[in-house]
Design a protein around this nucleic acid. Structure first.
Ligand SMILES: Nc1nc2c(ncn2[C@H]2C[C@H](O)[C@@H](COP(=O)(O)OP(=O)(O)OP(=O)(O)O)O2)c(=O)[nH]1
Ligand SMILES: [Mn+2]
Ligand SMILES: [Mn+2]
Length: 548
DNA sequence: ATTGTAAGCCAC
DNA sequence: AAACGTGGCTTACAAT
């Protein structure tokens, strides 16, 4: 299937010429941008074409210069044509899409890649997503990376001391219970200690193996063995603390810059669905739930005189599912302002919806999305604590309640099998060659990805539109990158740093803009707002009626 | 010393 | 570990 997206290789030069429509004038007149150079043309209104334009923009802005829009980023262009590849670096792109031509870093190379990608984007109906979404987001990401987010390093150091102490004690307790010293961080050594030396086994259950044939020691397995040996709860505790220590406390400290801020990199070509990813460090997976998690988040702070403002779409993918499937009852639930995550939590935990805790609701999220994207009864049972039979019945009841969701899924799969790819409402598409795999496992895996893609992909576009529109609004007010800074995009959440004296003005503005970026028919997009001096201690903001 | 893979786990 | 999906990071361990 990937062949369909390979360009040029199958055609002779002559055929190419006959088929290739002329490039629009603005692209023929594009300026080739090489990352290590500067040209007065960078200030012109011509299209700037090149690889890694975000990095070029960052470099130029650091040097007091800039790269004027409009942009044409070649890596992003080829990513839209074939999302999910490992690399969109020039060498990889030329190898895959411009066979026969090698990347030499020349302007001619850039024009070649521009011509090939632009024609194919147009042919596949991707021009609008590319130009109106991706190329608008690009300079916003550059600004976010340059700004960074402030970190309370003293808080992190204090956390490091606490965790060191706790880990040292846990380590000793674990050695004592095991009757020997070993590397707790080595799953193979731990597996041997647990299942050979101590002979721990779950009565009447088969051994859980990793793909490598080892007996698994992951948390889900240890959780089931919790009562079988006093070592197990110690290990679970150790695992959680060590994760926080190694990845978040020690790891993050290494990324704090001279300016006291962490500057993540947002990868625009990092996912197959249109989401962004974040790396070096990843600031999209900072812990949020556990006790340690809260403390880690509390180490991310606003600059003096500023506050952090968080805007998160409520139940975003469930609303999109209601919109796409048209399911009458799911739509009705959202028209009535229902919180489906809370409803599911209330059913699972058998409490009144008003008494659902944040932890219960987070668990319900996993179950709700799990059901919609193909989770089995066994996994549902483990996640929920229900028996396998109860889990099976719960899933069936869910699809009885929302029958049009199933119908929509069947339709998505049919079209996906016929076309070999899945589209989103914005025109983005993802090829899924696995759908035609002869391996039932691989085919089933591709089917689940196909069910997820139209929803996660549209959610990604909504979040990107939110970045674009809110930045435009703030720019019109004269505060963008002056008194209001976008710091992070966490999938369906935008985290701003805003001067205290304009919070009352811009918070309703941002929320209102986010709620209008993509109307889902009658289904409202709802944004939850929270603010505070520390990310780990935000308080919900309520707007008076009619202010947005 | 560097690179790649497996296992595991954090977030959305 | 299992019929949720999308990611990135750390450690251990083997291969280079
Ligand atoms: N497949 C899957 N998708 C998830 C999972 N967790 C989050 N997502 C996706 C779907 C969510 O709508 C989206 C945003 O995550 P959030 O944590 O903001 O949850 P959501 O918006 O649904 O609820 P909220 O009202 O914000 O608490 O990310 C998950 O466990 N599985
Ligand atoms: Mn949300
Ligand atoms: Mn969110």
């Amino acid at each position: 299937m990937a062949q369909r997206f390979l360009l040029g290789a199958r055609h002779s030069q002559k055929e190419q010429k006959e088929r290739a429509p002329a490039l629009p004038r603005e692209l023929r007149d594009a300026v080739a941008v090489r990352g290590d150079m500067f040209s007065p043309a960078y200030r012109s209104s011509q299209v700037k074409a090149g690889f890694s334009l975000k990095e070029t923009i960052r470099r130029l802005r650091r040097e007091g210069q800039d790269l004027a829009p409009p942009y044409y980023d070649l890596g992003v262009a080829f990513w839209l044509l074939l999302p999910g590849a490992r690399s969109y670096a020039p060498e990889a792109v030329f190898r895959r899409f411009l066979e026969g031509r090698a990347w030499e870093g020349s302007a001619a190379n850039i024009y070649d890649a521009l011509a090939v990608s632009a024609r194919e984007l147009a042919r596949q109906g991707l021009t609008s997503v590319f130009r109106d979404i991706e190329m608008q987001v690009l300079p916003i990401l550059a600004a976010m990376e340059l700004r960074g987010i402030a970190v309370d390093t003293a808080a992190l150091s204090s956390l490091e001391r606490s965790l060191r102490k706790e880990l040292a004690q846990l380590e000793q307790s674990i050695y004592r219970e095991a009757g020997m010293r070993f590397n707790i961080n080595s799953p193979s050594q731990l597996s041997e200690v647990l299942f050979q030396k101590l002979g721990i086994r779950q009565r009447g259950k088969s051994a859980k193996k990793t793909p490598g044939g080892m007996r698994s020691t992951r948390a889900a397995v240890l959780e089931e063995l919790r009562d079988e040996h006093p070592l197990i709860p110690l290990l679970l505790h150790y695992r959680e603390s060590f994760k926080v220590y190694s990845t978040y406390v020690r790891g993050l400290q290494n990324f704090v810059g001279e300016d006291g801020r962490i500057h993540t990199e947002f990868v625009q070509t990092g996912t197959a669905t249109g989401r962004l990813s974040s790396r070096r460090p990843n600031l999209q997976n900072i812990p949020s739930t556990s006790r340690w998690g809260k403390e880690i988040r509390a180490a991310f702070v606003a600059a003096p005189g500023y506050s952090l403002l968080s805007f998160d779409y409520s139940q975003i993918e469930l609303r999109i599912l209601a919109f796409l499937s048209g399911d009458a009852r799911l739509r009705e639930a959202f028209l009535q302002g229902k919180d489906i995550h809370a409803v599911t939590a209330a059913k699972i935990f058998q409490v009144d919806p008003s008494r659902v805790t944040p932890e219960m609701r987070r668990m319900a999220k996993v179950l709700n999305f799990g059901m919609n994207y193909g989770m089995g009864a066994t996994s549902f049972a483990r996640e929920s604590g229900l028996s396998r039979g109860e889990a099976q019945e719960f899933i069936e009841a869910y699809f009885r309640e929302f029958p049009q969701v199933r119908q929509w899924q069947e339709k998505v799969l049919q079209e996906a099998r016929a076309k070999g790819y899945v589209p989103t409402n914005t025109g983005r598409k993802r090829p899924l060659p696995g759908l035609r795999s002869l391996s039932p496992r691989a085919a089933a895996e591709a089917e689940r990805a196909a069910l997820n893609y139209p929803i996660q992909g549209l959610a990604a576009d909504i979040a990107k539109l939110a970045m674009i529109r809110t930045s435009q609004k703030l720019r019109a007010r004269g505060v963008w990158e002056k008194k209001a800074f976008l710091l992070l995009a966490i999938h369906d959440e935008l985290l701003f740093e805003v001067a205290d004296d304009i919070i009352g003005e811009v918070a309703p503005l941002i929320a209102a803009e986010m709620e209008r970026v993509f109307p889902l028919g009658e289904i409202p997009l709802v944004v939850t707002v929270a603010k505070g001096k520390r990310w780990g201690a935000l308080e919900k903001v309520h707007f008076p009626r009619g202010t947005r």
